[in-house]
Amino acid sequence: MSTNWTLVIHGGAGIINRGVLTPEQDEGARAALTRALEAGAAVLANDGASIDAVEAAVRVLEDDPHFNSARGAVLTFEGKVELDAAIMDGRDRSAGAVAGVSTARNPVTLARAVKDHSPHVLLTGAGADTFAREQSIEQAGEDWFVVPERRAQLAAMKESADWFDVDMKYGTVGAVACDAHGHVAAATSTGGVTGKRWGRVGDSPLIGAGTYADDRACAVSATGSGEFFIRESVGHEIGARVRMLGEPLQAAADAVMAGVKALGGSGGVIVTGPAGDAVWSFTTEGMYRGQVSAGAPPRVAIYADEG
């Protein structure tokens, strides 16, 4: 058994710099990242499984309105929440995902239920919401999910006649972990992009794009301009470079993110391998991120110049 357990988390990437965030936003985001690290580390430090650690960490971030996932999720063009999430276990590459759900308080836990209690990988919309109720997943209403800032963002987008997220902060949350037995897992959860229409689904719930885990290579959770991450098959591509070419995690992550950038996309990834090594790579001005490992204190960062 290895003692090199590791947990890495992210809370989104984009135009995130000291001129954009208020001191209160900066402090609140760092506090939430720290709580998420503590939740996941509590699992790993007690010989828990990586799949349980990533779910625990992401649940904390889903409950915090500083990020675009579950509580605090961005709104569709019609002013609704449509939530996406995925989780994957590197031991056997089992996975569960949901897209366009609106009633599960913690979509990552619903995705876990899809993995553990259904024959499917991806459930969507009303069917996924029905499955959530059948599985006794905790429910929440609009009064929990929707915060005033998101209503203001949607109004600003409509006034600008621009379908992009006006703040250009891809607030997807995610976690990757390697447990003490060398098993990796990944989880990702998001509200998508402000003003999305027609049931749009990004990369987060798509296995091999925004979420991927394979003990033979690594675990990946992504955040960014989802359409480009889908086209680049980011999670699987990083894993393939590690497994087939023997590339170090950093080299593989940087190469794939360069591919996303070449297509016109931006964002970031967090990655960990079965030896407990971990990296992040992003092409934006900042990415909410944090890491904790066995024998090392937690650290969180937001801006690119923080290392």
Rank of each mutant, 00 (worst) to 15 (best):
A155T: 10
S94E: 10
G96C: 08
R151Q: 12
A97Y: 02
T124N: 15
P119C: 04
T124V: 15
F145P: 02
S102F: 12
K158F: 12
E149T: 08
D84T: 04
S94F: 08
A86E: 01
T124Y: 14
T124D: 07
A156R: 11
A97K: 05
W144F: 15
D116Q: 13
Q139V: 12
L110P: 02
V81E: 01
R112N: 04
A97W: 02
T109W: 13
A132G: 14
G90Q: 06
A113D: 05
A111N: 02
K80C: 09
Q139H: 13
Q139E: 14
T109S: 12
S118V: 07
D116A: 13
F131C: 07
V108C: 08
D143F: 12
F131A: 08
T109H: 12
R112D: 01
F131T: 02
R133W: 11
R112V: 00
E134Q: 15
I137W: 05
E149F: 15
P148M: 09
A113G: 07
A95W: 10
S102G: 14
R150A: 11
R112M: 10
D84E: 09
I87Q: 00
R93D: 08
A126V: 14
F131D: 04
T109V: 13
E142R: 15
P148D: 08
A86S: 14
A132N: 02
D129E: 01
P148Y: 09
V98M: 07
